[in-house]
Design a protein around this nucleic acid. Structure first.
Lengths: 188, 188
DNA sequence: ACCTGAACACCGTTCAAGT
DNA sequence: ACCTGAACACCGTTCAAGT
């Protein structure tokens, strides 16, 4: 988001910064156009399983996959609710799947929101973690913290301290998604 | 994150930008110091229920509450894993609660990660939504999209279109958190 | 309608110099 | 050790002018 600058874009296309402002009100608008374009091209609709619960998982995973391939887009898009028109079909599948599983339309919307929070969070956290790995003195700081854990005060963390990095490096998006969906379908 | 500038900070404390660099390597380091300071002050430890499942919910909700009161911090902190030492106690409670509910230590760490993704996502999405509400032409664009929905193609969304804004405005963090925790505890 | 140049009001950071 | 001033290499955006 910060790495695209109006001036550099203008230079790369052999124009001037001000020419851009003739086609776009400001940088924000340009980013939203980029977002919509990317969404339209990257969100290919997958074949959906018949079982509504699996349909939810597949639709959410498709959104997740498109975003994971292009994490900068998340910075732009963490708006209200993934609001590119080409993404609405996926939202429909999720909401519909939840309704078919017995939720009221209202609870289905809330359920979709929870899935979106989880999905957006996974992307944002992983993206900033990856960005920070380049300037890696934060990583060594973490190692030091986990090395110095007091097993009396934080026994569980001390227990997994040496496995923390590989464990949190594993891609468990789908496991968490399945858990969340399962939990949403438990009627309390 | 962008709104704190080295130059303005220097001016406000009656100093020069360069004096700051004598105490801090760069802006990133200053932000991390701010983060740690905020975490140490804002994360007051709540009384925890005996039931491990409720303990998880209460610990996660405490983190969420501290972040919701100060959403700019999330921009800084969406690092690997909420890594202020003063937050580790909360992580311990969550991991321990999951283990007491029968998960292996490894699955408990993954479960904590899922909870963190969900929590961070909720904060980020709500924060950027709120930021965007100021320049509100994106909101009217959304209204237009939801007004023009084709009920043949997207029936569920058309069905809830007029209630979308209030529905997504509701604070359902706790509901989603409970669903996620419940799902994590279902052994498959 | 579409583009340009110069300017405004900013950034983070480096460098050489001061006490 | 701690601070300063001037400078470097950038930003997004406005404004007045050109074709």
């Amino acid at each position: 988001m910060d790495r695209l600058t109006m001036r550099r874009l203008a230079m790369e296309i052999g124009s001037t910064p001000m020419a851009l402002y003739h086609h776009v009100r400001n940088k924000e608008e340009l980013l939203v156009l980029l977002l919509d374009d990317y969404a339209a091209r990257a969100l290919r609709r997958p074949e959906l399983p018949a079982h509504p619960r699996e349909r939810i998982v597949v639709a959410a995973a498709a959104i997740h996959e498109a975003l994971a391939a292009c994490p900068w887009i998340v910075e732009v898009l963490t708006a209200d609710d993934l609001m590119s028109t080409s993404a609405l079909w996926f939202v429909e599948q999720i909401v519909d799947g939840l309704v078919e599983c017995g939720l009221s339309p209202e609870r289905a919307v809330h359920g979709y929101r929870a899935i979106w929070y989880y999905t957006a969070g996974e992307i944002v956290v992983r993206a900033t973690a990856a960005r920070r790995r380049e300037g890696d003195d934060r990583a060594t700081y973490r190692e030091q913290v986990f090395g110095d854990l007091d097993p009396g005060e934080l026994p569980r963390l001390a227990q997994v301290a040496d496995r923390w990095a590989p464990l949190t490096g594993e891609d468990t998006y789908l496991d968490g998604l399945r858990a969340l969906v399962a939990g949403l379908l438990v009627i309390r």
